[in-house]
Design a protein around this nucleic acid. Sequence first.
DNA 1: TCTATTTGACCCAG
DNA 2: CTGGGTCAAATAGA
Length: 326
Amino acid sequence: MEGSSSDGSRYGGAGRCALVAELVQMQGMVRQLEAEMGTHGGGGGGGGGAAPMAAGADERCRALVSGLLSSIDRSISIARSCCTEAAAAGRLTQQAGAAPESPPSVDGSAGSDLGADSRCRANAAGPCKKRKTLPKWSKQVKVRSVQDVGPLDDGFSWRKYGQKDILGAKYPRAYFRCTHRHTQGCHASKQVQRADGDPLLFDVVYHGDHTCAHGVRSAAAAIDGQAAASAEQKHQPTPPQEQNAVSVAFTSMAVVNASTSSPFVSPAMSDCQISYELGGGSMAGVRNVPDVELASKTNSSMGDDMEFMFSLDADFLDTYKYSSYF
DNA sequence: TCTATTTGACCCAG
DNA sequence: CTGGGTCAAATAGA
């Protein structure tokens, strides 16, 4: 039971539903193209010199098509999750966007969260089931096999506190929070969900920064060499594991060329894409991504962002065409 | 015994 | 009312 029939209401708008539909349509077309290439190009040029395309070009096209396919798969799942998050992001936008000079604090104790606490059932250290309004960012992590979850290890210690089947998603979403939540008051959390289209791909959404000793150490290591950005970070808390990968372009997105020197990104995580969201805008970094990626979670101004996302992808495709992947 | 995971129930936002 | 996020009791493993 996919529940996909309820997409219309779920995505909170015909436009969003249309986005998913459009992506599905793109998927179909690419599949068709792939099939066409299969019949024409033949198994790798074995069919003799009759192939109109040079073997190298053919190979590149195949790689492109397969990249497109997996990208579209991911895009669909992102779009679906985005749509469900749109409302929450909207609230985030209202808070952070309306007053960008007073964003949630970097220490994760998030002022906005405290604000929410005041309205919730109450108590100091107490549990509050109020939706989080901490800054969040997401990335996609590709594993090598279905059993391989090594790349999901981002260097922090997480404790799983829940799992839930998500409507329209093939795989359940797992909820983690920092192991040191109670001992050190670290409010970092993350959600991990397998992408619908690609079981090897995980969408990881982080909420809040680590304030535990481990997290601070990690951040310090990552910050090394980018002190200049520190002032900016006050406004845009940076994903702890990816600080050296993020070049800030608020309300827009940028392709970042990251070194892989972060100690928190295992080599196996070379296929990952980060999108970073904070209230008024979102940005994404694509690094070492062998596919064309559709980046970014979105927010209330989804339409504009999506437009930009696609242009970004086109650019990336262009760049990518000349990269050493082929 | 301690810590982590599982899972059903509860709560909140839309 | 529904779906997503969180809690907390039960359970499993070291």
